[in-house]
């Protein structure tokens, strides 16, 4: 029997050069603890400001939805949470993004480690199309040098089960990742993110390219996953935000207008802008 902490140990899983508390330990702390937090986070692309002075908590074992009209900065904010802007040439980040109290933008922090702790699921399913389903799931583990077959088998099954895909693909793990349906491919992408045992899962419009049935499966999955992980989801579908999230943040013109419990924000928003956006007056 292998423990996932073995994987982290083998991969030298550290932030700020010190051993972090394992995700499994943190998850027993209770439902309303802060897992991530941004403080005055600003992202600029050259002269253009994507998001400005965003301070927002991401609670453990809760789903946080980011909503707002196109161009409001919600995806920019999401990508800043796992340092994806590092690859954007003219992107400048200021402020802090804390994971378990430690700034992920600290110079000593390895962004690859961060992206393993903070997984991302994109709008379109992103399986490696010619790679087998099995290889897709364990790709992240192999990247960090894990070769133990038993461990890979075990992690693959667990991740596929967590992604509610195991029963559908268990007899064809060697089939190509691109051979399954779009909904299954998205769940495969989620399984790949889960395989490296992240602490936070970021989802950028994960169901926008899926049919209603596949979308509904992903939503059910989010409900199950948030029992273990902190989830941040960007969605244009407000009903989806209302269904799956515990907290909702409304962004407008790069600023955070309102953040609060989802049921409260959707029934009795505090700010007029939120009210107008939710009721379709703009956006």
């Amino acid at each position: 029997m292998y423990d996932i902490s073995d994987i982290k140990e083998k991969a030298g899983d550290q932030i700020d050069g010190t051993s972090g508390t394992s995700g499994s330990d943190k998850r027993t702390e209770g439902p309303a603890t802060i897992r991530m937090e941004t403080k005055d986070l600003t992202v600029k692309y050259g002269e253009v400001t994507g998001v400005r002075n965003i301070s927002l908590p991401v609670y453990n074992q809760k789903a946080t939805a980011l909503i707002g009209p196109s161009g409001c900065g919600k995806s920019t904010f999401l990508r800043a949470l796992n340092r994806m802007h590092d690859l954007t040439r003219n992107a400048v980040i200021s402020g802090e993004v804390l994971l378990d109290g430690k700034n992920i933008y600290h110079p000593k922090v390895n962004p690859v480690v961060i992206r393993r702790k903070i997984g991302m699921v994109f709008q379109k399913p992103t399986p490696f199309p010619t790679m087998s389903i099995f290889d897709n799931v364990v790709a992240g583990l192999r990247l960090v040098g894990i070769r133990d077959k038993n461990l890979l088998n075990e992690v693959c099954e667990r991740a596929l089960r967590q992604a509610a895909l195991w029963d559908e693909v268990k007899d064809r793990l060697s089939s190509a990742g691109g051979s399954i349906s779009g909904g299954q491919q998205q769940r495969l992408s989620i399984a790949r993110a889960l395989a490296i045992d992240p602490e936070v899962i970021l989802m950028d419009e994960p169901t926008s390219s899926l049919d209603p049935l596949s979308s509904s499966k992903i939503e059910e999955l989010i409900h199950e996953l948030k029992e273990k992980y902190a989830i941040v989801i960007v969605t244009h579908n407000m009903q989806q935000a209302a269904r799956v999230s515990d907290y909702t943040a409304f962004f407008y013109l790069g600023e955070l207008v309102e953040f609060g419990p989802t049921d409260q924000l959707f029934t009795n928003p505090v700010h007029q802008r939120t009210e107008e956006y939710l009721t379709g007056k703009f956006g």
């Binding site: 928003p269 009210e275 009721t279």
Partner: peptide
């Protein structure tokens, strides 16, 4: 129409 906020209320 899935109303929310003041419309739902």
């Amino acid at each position: 129409h899935k109303p929310v906020a003041s419309e739902l209320r």
